[in-house]
């Protein structure tokens, strides 16, 4: 299956800002069952776009914009081929000893240790107990069960949490968005010594998939866990899916903090508004320009002050 993806991010500032420096992770990966066939990034106002690969192999584009302006628009257009793979079968998947051997043979520490968003806490421990998160049965069966439990126990409520909300909010309210569910799943399975990583990307929505809870027109997040016999397998607790060819992977990291689609800094004291629009379509239908953004975030001005005294008072050795 070949998909065409258009991802538009618009930042509006009032009054104008200057010296924006931005990094974006928008180029789909070429690994596993997926190839990025083409990618184009457009920035308005114009800027020289440079790129590098980060420590997990994601392609990062970055640029700075001189002058002053009230709007920055970043448009990424890509064509991605995703091969359909059969769903992993328990009969071909290894047991816990196989998993331990796999972990010992490679360096998976990064995806085993707690990270910024995916870490233990009291509400998480309670959930782990409730779900009987312990090494039992077979790794694949247990992962599938946890994936489904998050799907059934947590309500998907748009805008119920923010990008920087700790998972405790979602754990307490038993509701959240895809990012929360991914972090909760990671935090549940890493203590079992199953390497687990965060994936940001897109989902292709079809009318016939009535169980889909993720939003059409937005980016999506799920996890990949290491399963003996199958390698990295995608688990999507938002939609109760395991594997599949409707997921388009853009970036992988320990959690969201490693892979935000856009990150930037600017100078000026302004009210800002961020809006994002995403379309995913089969490649024979060229993605139309989206009309309405899928979500909008408004922020109050951030006071750019002289370097705070507390920051200057850092230790010198």
């Amino acid at each position: 299956m070949i998909y065409s993806v258009r991802h538009t991010t618009t930042f509006r500032y009032e009054p104008a800002v200057r010296e924006s420096v931005m990094e974006v992770r928008l180029q789909p990966r070429s690994d596993g069952e997926q190839r990025c066939l083409s990618f184009a990034l457009d920035v308005d106002p114009a800027a020289n776009i440079m790129q590098y690969r980060d420590f997990t192999g994601n392609t990062v584009h970055h640029f700075d914009i001189a002058g002053s302006y009230k709007q920055v628009k970043v448009t990424a257009q890509s064509a991605v081929e995703v091969q359909s793979v059969p769903a992993p079968r328990t009969s071909d998947s290894g047991d816990w000893a196989d998993l331990d051997a796999l972990v010992a043979a490679n360096d998976h520490w990064e995806m085993l240790l707690p990270s910024h968003f995916a870490h233990s806490s009291e509400p998480l421990e309670r959930l782990a107990k409730e779900l009987k998160c312990e090494r039992r049965g077979n790794p694949l069966v247990l992962l599938t069960e946890i994936n489904e439990s998050i799907y059934t126990m947590f309500a998907y409520v748009k805008n119920s949490t923010k990008v920087d909300s700790p998972i405790e909010e979602a754990l307490q309210a038993r509701q959240g968005v895809c990012q929360d569910f991914a972090h909760i799943m990671i935090a549940l399975v890493r203590p079992l010594k199953i390497p687990c990583r965060y994936v940001s990307g897109y989902m292709f929505h079809r009318d016939e998939d009535e169980n889909d809870r993720s939003l059409e027109g937005a980016s999506h997040a799920w996890v990949e866990a290491l399963v003996p016999g199958w390698g990295w397998v995608a688990f999507d607790p938002t939609n109760n899916l395991v594997g599949g060819d409707r997921h388009i992977r853009v970036a992988i990291g320990r959690d969201y903090a490693d892979v935000p689609p856009t990150r930037g800094v600017y100078k000026g004291e302004a009210q800002s508004e961020l809006s994002v629009a995403v379309t995913v379509s089969p490649a024979d239908n060229v993605a139309p320009e989206p009309i309405t953004p899928s979500f909008v975030v408004r922020s109050r001005p951030v006071l750019v002050r002289a370097a705070a005294r507390s920051e200057q008072e850092q230790q010198q050795q």
Binding site: E19, E23, Y52, H62, G264, V265, A307, E311, Q314, Q315
Partner: peptide, 30 residues
């Protein structure tokens, strides 16, 4: 530099830092 890693580049390290130089790490990497 006599500034800690954390405060060198708000784009790459602590985003709330106003001491650093945005984009410095990318110039360094290059």
């Amino acid at each position: 530099r006599r500034v800690d890693d954390d405060f060198l580049d708000p784009l790459c390290f602590r985003q709330d830092s106003s001491l650093g130089v945005p984009g410095l790490f990318n110039a360094y990497r290059a």
